[in-house]
């Protein structure tokens, strides 16, 4: 475990000792700020059955940022090591492959979680300034739907970051890694909308598409409905994707 924490520390330093990380956080905070203000304006002009936090989390631009940001965070994880030739020494060092995978994965996940803190802050700040609830009725900090919504964003992020790790492990080119993960995530996200567009889909396909649709999961969680299905789904598929990443990296050991 000690090795894991040493590696995690190294990865976190790699993120937070670079000004690029802060530029990314500031840019994402700005973009989320724009979406937040857009949601406020929407509720200013039209009555909605959704509260502010719900409106923001179901906003399409919010999801576009979501899909764009994960490849940016994860593209360098393994690709950079491969390109610089530092991966081989790491793999031959007394470090287990899983320790390396988990360290890089959790570092990326922590960075990802930090990106969404401004969103939560906007809601709390909104309640202070406007003296109205951002989550319908109670204060955001005391509302299960507030934590449910962002908890689901974290769960989805767990899976998405794992996909990013996997893509990064596949190639030594960061751009290609980012393109692979962006493509996978975009297709995955759009699958949730296929059921709305395609006709004559068998019921089991519709069930499946609804089961994997992240926007539906957030819709439920942000309204206050906690369901074990998305939890099991994201946790299990995150584990599977990380296992695949592990195998891809281990492949180097036995291919020679």
């Amino acid at each position: 475990m000690r090795t894991f924490f040493i590696l995690l520390n190294r990865e976190l330093k790699a993120y937070f000792q670079s000004i690029v990380a802060y530029i990314v956080i500031a840019a994402v905070a700005l973009l989320h700020g724009i979406i937040f203000l857009r949601s406020v304006k929407e509720l200013k002009t039209e009555t909605s059955s959704l509260h502010l936090n719900h409106v923001m989390l179901l906003n399409i631009p919010f999801w576009l940022i979501f899909i764009l940001i994960v490849p940016l965070i994860t593209m360098r994880l393994f690709s950079e090591e491969q390109k610089l030739g530092t991966l081989e020494p790491l793999l031959t060092a007394p470090v287990q492959t899983w320790q390396m995978v988990f360290a890089k994965y959790f570092a990326a996940l922590i960075f990802y979680a930090i990106l969404y803190l401004p969103c939560m802050f906007y809601m709390i700040y909104f309640e202070r300034v406007v003296d109205a609830s951002a989550v319908g009725g109670v204060s955001a900090l005391r509302s299960p739907s507030f934590y449910g919504g962002y908890g689901m964003i974290l769960l989805i992020g767990m899976f998405f970051v794992a996909i990013g790790c996997f893509s990064s492990a596949m190639t030594s080119n960061q751009i290609i890694a980012a393109v692979i993960s962006f493509t996978i995530l975009l297709i995955y996200f759009l699958l949730g909308y296929v059921r709305l567009l395609a006709s004559d889909l068998p019921p089991i396909t519709i069930e499946f598409l609804e089961y994997i649709s992240p926007i539906e999961h957030v819709r439920d969680a942000a309204s206050g409905l906690v369901d074990t299905r998305p939890m099991v789904y994201y946790t299990s598929f995150t584990a599977l994707t990380l296992a695949l990443t592990h195998y891809v990296l281990d492949y180097r050991k036995w291919k020679v």
């Binding site: 406020v40 509720l43 200013k44 059955s49 959704l50 509260h51 502010l52 406007v130 109205a132 319908g136």
Partner: peptide, 11 residues
Amino acid sequence: GNYRLDIGDRP
């Protein structure tokens, strides 16, 4: 709940 924000220019 049907939500509509009554928010002034200053806030």
